[in-house]
């Protein structure tokens, strides 16, 4: 288990170094940063001075090393556009995105798994077939379209929910949360639903397919022959066996949720990291873009590593067992 953990962490570090390299390349190839700093009529000599001061004339390997060390300390430099440290900008925007993604992820699990089980257990029911069709629509409509439709119905026609922003937030230390105010919670509903819709339908369809597969397994037939109650067969024996692919896909999709949050944040004017990134792209604000890239990758890597560890919890066959080294037992 320990060896596995170390190996997995080393892999994660390698991935992060590669991502950092790509982020680093952005600085070199998306325009000359010196141009962004000095005034337009600076002389060639002034330019060289700045270049030297910033260490931009050092060999590439040294510059890369410096970038990685600074990034590891959370220092991504200063935003070109509003001259504030990038880390501060991101920290300010992180809570909004994190809360949105968290709610969307929970919604997709809380709704997706039970709906998947239901459609698998009653495959011919009217409700199941309706859900299947709905999920097909959900999985194929682009999220910005569903977002705009949601705004049209719930904000414009019915006037129940706000169409943009986070509502009122309360600061707890540096974290600003919308969970504690009524308007904050109301503002969360539409964006999180839009964000989770794809994931929700994916999980529902996945759970359904896996469950149908597992219900045909011999151990389910044998569980029936042992006279176990249907509830135990479906929710204990079958569900646990369907969870491994669900955990995999959920882990992958959680990263996807953060990435897709860009679209949701744009549609709902949500003040999160995605919106910040879109602005940064518009102004070629390379430090912000680089920091966003590194940060999202870091989240991806953390999630995937945790998923690998979760497998071990769910499936005993993956746990390395010292007694097995001596043969298969018996």
């Amino acid at each position: 288990m320990f060896v596995f953990l170390v190996r997995r962490l080393l892999q994660a570090v390698m991935v992060m170094l590669a991502v950092a390299f790509i982020a680093f390349l952005m600085f070199r190839y998306l325009g000359d940063p010196v141009n962004n700093i000095v005034s337009q009529d600076a002389t060639q000599q002034q330019r060289e001075e700045v270049r030297q001061r910033l260490g931009l004339d050092d060999p590439m390997a040294i510059q890369y090393g410096r970038f990685v060390i600074n990034a590891a300390k959370g220092d991504f430099g200063v935003s070109y556009r509003n001259s504030r440290p990038v880390s501060a900008l991101l920290a300010e925007r992180l809570p909004a995105t994190a809360e949105l993604v968290l709610v969307a992820a929970l919604l997709s699990l809380v709704l997706g798994i039970p709906l998947g089980i239901y459609t698998a257990l009653k495959p011919r029911g009217v409700l199941s077939q309706g859900l299947q069709i709905m999920s097909l629509i959900g999985i194929s409509l682009p999220t910005f379209v569903t977002g705009i439709l949601l705004i049209l119905v719930f904000s414009v026609w019915l006037g129940w929910l706000p169409s943009f922003g986070r509502g009122d937030v309360i600061d707890i230390g540096w974290w600003s949360t919308g969970f504690l105010t009524a308007s904050g919670l109301k503002a969360l509903i539409l964006p999180s639903f839009m964000l989770c819709l794809f994931q929700l339908t994916l999980i529902m369809r996945l759970v359904r397919a896996e469950m149908l597969e597992v219900l045909r397994a011999d151990y389910i037939k044998f569980a029936k022959a042992r006279g176990l109650k249907n509830r135990a067969i479906h929710f204990r024996h079958a569900l646990k066996n369907t969870l491994i692919p669900v955990v995999t896909i959920f882990g992958l999709q959680l990263g996807g949720l953060i990435a897709f949050a860009i679209i949701t944040e744009t549609v709902f004017q949500w003040p999160g990291m995605g919106a910040l990134f879109i602005q940064a792209v518009n102004f070629t604000d390379v430090p912000v873009m680089a920091a966003y890239l590194v940060m999202v990758s870091l989240i991806f890597v953390i999630i995937n590593t945790s998923v690998d560890l979760l497998y071990n919890v769910i499936d005993p066959r993956l746990r390395t067992d010292p007694t097995r080294a001596s043969g298969k037992g018996a």
Partner: peptide, 23 residues
Amino acid sequence: RKIRGRHIGAIFQDPLTSLNPLF
């Protein structure tokens, strides 16, 4: 269901797949 296991038991062909691997 109450009769299965309690009054009539069953054993199937393949012991490798008759047991739930996760319990």
